[in-house]
Design a protein around this nucleic acid. Structure first.
Length: 376
DNA sequence: GCTTGTG
DNA sequence: CACAAGCAACGCGAG
DNA sequence: CTCGCG
């Protein structure tokens, strides 16, 4: 959008009482230029308009609220309209909505905040009651980034937190929290495999990390092989794109049904089974130089004090990719690692539903008998 | 993005 | 005042 | 021991 370009978003006729209407009319007739039909003023007066939404470039059922004497015309931007219209929590002061967060994907901060609002219902369950590790890029994904685990002193009271040994950590339990973190440049949301109030994991995750995006086919092969093994064990599993190069397989398990020691034995066992079966394709070799282009099954990444990117979290990647939950049928040769982004994931979920919709139900239904007999 | 420390 | 820095963490192997 | 790495 051209800078300083005026965008018409319709007319507003309702909401003015007789007196206010007369005042506005006088302002235009006294100060405006008349072209024989209408009086026009350069952009100078700011007013609040209540509306249903913006549909095909026009406000629906706009209604005048009030003149905003304290507001400058320069604040009336398309970004501000996007934010106002997305029903973001009003308790947060959204700064720099026009700031570009993903230059190559043409995503600004306003668009990111709107994405987070729209995906929140699908993302929040996976953040619930877990200590949060954030990767923040307040100047965009191409600029400096940093990790954050500790709650900043200035954080508002509505951010949940937990203090352990005098250290206070962040928890993202609400829409408000999610958008507060996003407004502070929080791009990647990572969480551990256990809830904050227990040392027991309630999910197991395999991280399938090919050496490059060009070898994404390895991640697909590994996922299919592991899925077969999990099916044989009658374990319910879910799969998502990491949003980077690979795939991640999630197995929800009931709270307190396994210790981290047991889940580590299991992931190690599966990873080594797959490695032995397809030694030319997959490896659990930690050293990069010993992997020889094979896919690294990072079973160490599942464990105490480790974290995994949350479903639907954005990634610090040029394309604006997100960690997108998939249907297992989608794990085939047509799948691309960069397929799902901030641009298209909300529509995808609205059309097809969330592939992780039954995640919490599966956690309760999960039968671990076969898994445990494997560990013996 | 915001706070704190330094010149 | 204008700045720059900090904002996680741990284990392991190589040097 | 410190440094890189995931």
């Amino acid at each position: 959008m051209e800078k300083n370009e005026l965008i018409s978003i319709g007319q507003c006729k309702h909401g003015l009482d007789a007196k206010a209407a007369k005042t506005v009319k006088q302002v235009f007739m006294n100060n405006g230029s008349f072209n024989g039909k209408i009086y026009a003023l350069p952009p100078a007066i700011v007013a609040s308009i209540r509306t249903l939404d913006l549909y095909q470039g026009e406000l629906r059922e706009p209604s005048f609220q009030r003149i905003e004497t304290e507001m400058d015309v320069s604040e009336c931007t398309l970004e501000r309209l996007m934010i106002d219209q997305a029903m973001l929590p009003a308790s947060i002061d959204y700064s720099n909505p026009e700031k570009i967060y993903w230059p190559k994907a043409a995503i600004n901060k306003a668009a990111y905040l709107v994405y987070m609002r729209e995906i929140s219902a699908f993302m929040l369950p996976f953040l619930q009651n877990r200590l949060l590790t954030l990767i923040r890029c307040p100047e965009g994904v191409e600029k400096e980034s940093f990790f954050q685990k500790h709650l900043p002193d200035y954080a508002p009271a509505f951010i949940d937190r937990m203090t352990v040994d005098g250290e206070t950590f962040m928890i993202c339990n609400s829409l408000e929290s999610l958008l507060w973190f996003a407004n502070h440049g929080g791009i990647e949301f990572h969480v551990p495999f256990n809830q904050a109030d227990t040392p027991y994991p309630n999910e197991i995750v395999f991280d399938l990390d090919p050496p490059s995006r060009e070898r994404f086919d390895l991640a697909i092969q590994a996922a299919v092989v592991i899925k077969e093994l999990l099916d044989k064990l009658q374990l319910i599993s879910f799969v998502k794109l990491s949003g980077s190069k690979g795939l991640q397989i999630h197995i929800p398990i009931k709270e307190k049904s396994m210790t981290y020691e047991q889940t580590a034995l299991f992931t190690q066992g599966i990873a080594q089974t797959v490695e032995n079966q397809y030694a030319n394709l997959f490896t659990t070799e930690r050293m990069k130089k010993n992997r020889h282009g094979r896919l690294y099954i990072d079973y160490v990444q599942h464990g105490k004090n480790k974290t995994i990117v949350t479903p639907y979290s954005a990634r610090k990647k040029d394309e604006g990719t997100v960690a997108a939950p998939l249907f297992w049928e989608e794990v085939n040769d047509d799948l691309l690692p960069q397929q799902f982004t901030i641009h298209n994931v909300v529509d995808r979920v609205k059309e097809k539903g969330c592939p992780f919709a039954d995640y919490q139900i599966a956690r309760e239904q999960q039968k671990l008998d076969n898994l445990f007999s494997l560990l013996e």
